[in-house]
């Protein structure tokens, strides 16, 4: 098990390195940031001087190596626009995105998993049809549109919730729902399939033949068995949540790393974009490692396999 996890960690490092490299070169395809930094009417000499000062006149590969060298010293560099440390700028935004993602995950797990279980257990009935419609809605609404609808209804018409910004729990409600809706639908569908799959197994009939009610058989046996595929999806969905955060944070003016990434891409603030992507990929990889550990906790076949 430990060796397995160490192997996965090694793979994770290689993957992070790959992500970094791709982002580094793709960002530089977007153009030279020097042109956005100089004042209106600067001379060609002034531009060249600034470009030289920032190091953008060096060959791309040299820039890349020097970036890696800085990274190896845990130096994330300075923002081109804000002229202060990238680490501090990004770190300031992270708690907001974590809060938003956690809120969305609460929405997604809290509604999606019970809905999926209910759809499987009451298969073919009214409950399943109603829930299936609800899930399909959550899955079909694009986040940027559902976000605006929520703002119109609860923020503008009913005036129950603030329309934007990050000011306490009440301002988290709408962004968390907008971001969590798609993930909720994914959880509901995956849970339904996993539970249906387990319900058809002999051990469920055997448990019922022992006198357990269907509900008791589900609670005691089915949920734990169905958890394994759902955990896999949960780890992958965290990636979708972080990607979705870019849109939701923009719609709701939520000061997280998604909003920061959009602003920095527009300003060609390379180092901030690279750091945000690095952070997201580390979180994503970390979640998948956590899922590996969760399998072992759930399933003795994995835990005891040495």
């Amino acid at each position: 098990m430990i060796r397995h996890l160490a192997g996965r960690l090694g793979q994770a490092l290689v993957a992070s390195f790959g992500v970094l490299t791709i982002v580094f070169f793709v960002m530089r395809l977007s153009g030279d940031p020097t042109l956005l930094l100089v004042p209106e009417g600067a001379t060609a000499e002034q531009i060249a001087a600034l470009r030289h000062a920032l190091g953008f006149d060096r060959p791309l590969f040299v820039q890349y190596l020097s970036y890696l060298a800085d990274l190896a010293r845990l130096d994330l560099g300075e923002s081109l626009v804000q002229r202060s440390g990238v680490a501090g700028i990004v770190a300031e935004r992270i708690p907001y995105t974590v809060e938003l993602a956690a809120g969305a995950l609460v929405v997604a797990l809290g509604i999606g998993i019970p809905a999926g279980v209910a759809m499987a257990v009451w298969r073919g009935g009214m409950v399943e049809r109603l829930l299936a419609g609800f899930v399909l809605t959550g899955q079909s609404l694009p986040t940027f549109w559902s976000g605006i609808l929520l703002i119109l209804l609860f923020g503008v018409h009913l005036r129950w919730l603030p329309t934007s910004g990050a000011d306490g729990l009440s301002s988290l409600v709408m962004p968390a729902i907008a971001l969590g809706a798609l993930t909720m639908s994914t959880f509901a569908r995956m849970t339904r399939i996993a539970v249906l799959d387990e319900l058809s197994r002999d051990y469920v009939s055997a448990a019922r033949a022992r006198g357990l009610s269907l509900g008791a058989a589900v609670a005691r046996h089915v949920l734990r068995n169905a958890a394994i595929p759902v955990v896999t999806i949960a780890a992958l969905e965290v990636g979708n949540l972080l990607a979705g955060a870019v849109i939701v944070e923009t719609v709701f003016a939520w000061p997280g790393i998604g909003q920061l990434a959009i602003q920095s891409i527009a300003a060609r603030d390379f180092l901030i974009v690279q750091t945000v992507v690095l952070f997201v990929s580390v979180v994503y990889i970390g979640m998948n490692l956590l899922a590996d550990i969760a399998y072992a906790v759930i399933d003795p076949r994995i835990r005891l396999d040495r």
């Binding site: 197994r201 002999d202 051990y203 009939s205 055997a206 005691r220 068995n225 399933d299 076949r301």
Partner: peptide, 12 residues
């Protein structure tokens, strides 16, 4: 049942 291993919950 016919298949004893399938008739037992693998995780319990």
């Amino acid at each position: 049942f016919q298949e004893p291993q399938a008739a037992l919950d693998p995780l319990t």
